[in-house]
């Protein structure tokens, strides 16, 4: 069976997950993103690639940064952007996901950027479009349940490549709430595909998925041990709102054991970079001094995110 994200020529048709996406496509997206970073410096921050196209941001779950950067990316490509806040619209009145999609297709949508609490929702939409012969409409997953957040994974890879150049000699640590994190899944998939020799996940047993080792990572339950000698520290947000049941003691206690402080960061390589997908819980998973420190590249991540999303949309948008 062919990868549902690729068309019959092996080109990107939808972006749903980084899992199983070939290395040459990942590299093509990263290479394409590089020249888009320059557009932000121009007098006119607009390119004509998606002129006349309509991009619908379908956010069934709250998001500020992701939705905003997708919107900026689409607007810099000259697309018309329509933001649908589904909490206050038809879904709240009981319309099904695919009925919503069909209605927006009737309004000549060219691309859907979808965030949904249910894993697999963007895939469902992509399959529906394929089944109904609407191959010219593209779907970009902006985060689904615990499954994937591919553009976040891509912008993280762009950031690592920007600061470290080469993936094949790196040790990368992903720290925190891996269990609830679609970001971590996308990061692990991309890092492995791009040839990072050692990917570590660091966290308490209650916040790591069972058999996480099968993803090809080394597991550490001791943060100090896990951070030793790493080149990249990727912090995850403690997903308070997803937490049910007593997985954790208190945020203060979590910070004591799993919070990234200058003292713990000193165990990594001296030139290690610190990343965070945002929004940060200062004083829970990361200390303010580290978040604002010289090794943090958290704000460049946001800026690169626009270029990466422009690259993805412009690679999809022509077909």
């Amino acid at each position: 069976m062919r990868n549902p994200q690729l068309n019959q020529h092996g080109e990107l048709q939808h972006l749903l997950t980084l899992d199983g996406l070939p290395r040459d496509i990942l590299n093509a997206i990263l290479d394409t993103a590089a020249p888009f970073t320059e557009v932000a410096e121009r007098e006119v921050k607009k390119l004509p690639l998606l002129r006349g196209k309509s991009v619908f941001n379908l956010f069934f779950e709250n998001s500020t940064r992701t939705r905003t950067t997708f919107e900026i990316a689409a607007k810099r490509l000259s697309a018309d952007v329509v933001n649908l806040n589904i909490n206050t619209s038809s879904a709240a009145k009981g319309e099904s996901l695919l009925d919503t999609v069909d209605n927006l297709c009737a309004m000549q949508a060219d691309m859907f950027v979808v965030r949904h609490a249910a894993s697999g929702a963007p895939m469902l939409i992509a399959q529906h479009l394929q089944n109904t012969g609407r191959d010219h409409i593209h779907v970009v997953n902006a985060g689904d349940g615990r499954h994937a957040h591919p553009t976040q994974g891509l912008l993280d890879m762009y950031t690592i490549r920007h600061f470290k150049r080469d993936f094949t000699n790196l040790t990368v640590a992903i720290v925190g709430d891996v269990l609830h994190s679609r970001v971590a899944r996308s990061q692990i998939a991309a890092l492995t595909t791009l040839g990072v020799p050692e990917v570590r996940v660091i966290g308490p047993k209650t916040l790591l998925p069972t058999e996480v080792e099968r993803l090809g990572v080394r597991v550490f339950h001791d943060m100090r041990e896990g951070l030793k000698g790493v080149d990249v520290v990727m912090m995850l947000r403690l997903q308070n709102e997803r937490m049910n049941g007593a997985l954790l003691p208190t945020p203060q206690e979590y910070y004591k054991i799993w919070g990234l402080t200058a003292e713990k960061l000193a165990l990594a390589k001296p030139d290690a970079i610190v990343m965070h997908p945002g929004p940060m819980n200062r004083g829970v998973e990361i200390d303010s001094a580290v978040a604002d420190g010289a090794q943090a590249v958290i704000l460049p991540q946001v800026t690169f995110g626009i270029a990466v999303r422009m690259a993805v949309m412009s690679m999809l948008g022509s077909r």
Binding site: E11, A28, D31, T32, A34, P35, T37, E38, L47, P48, L49, S314, M315, S318, R319
Partner: peptide, 17 residues
């Protein structure tokens, strides 16, 4: 990013800055 055949041919591979 400014070519008039983008819609038919897609984005040129690895554009430069």
């Amino acid at each position: 990013f400014y070519r008039d055949d983008y819609a038919s041919k897609g984005l040129h591979a690895s554009p430069k800055k």
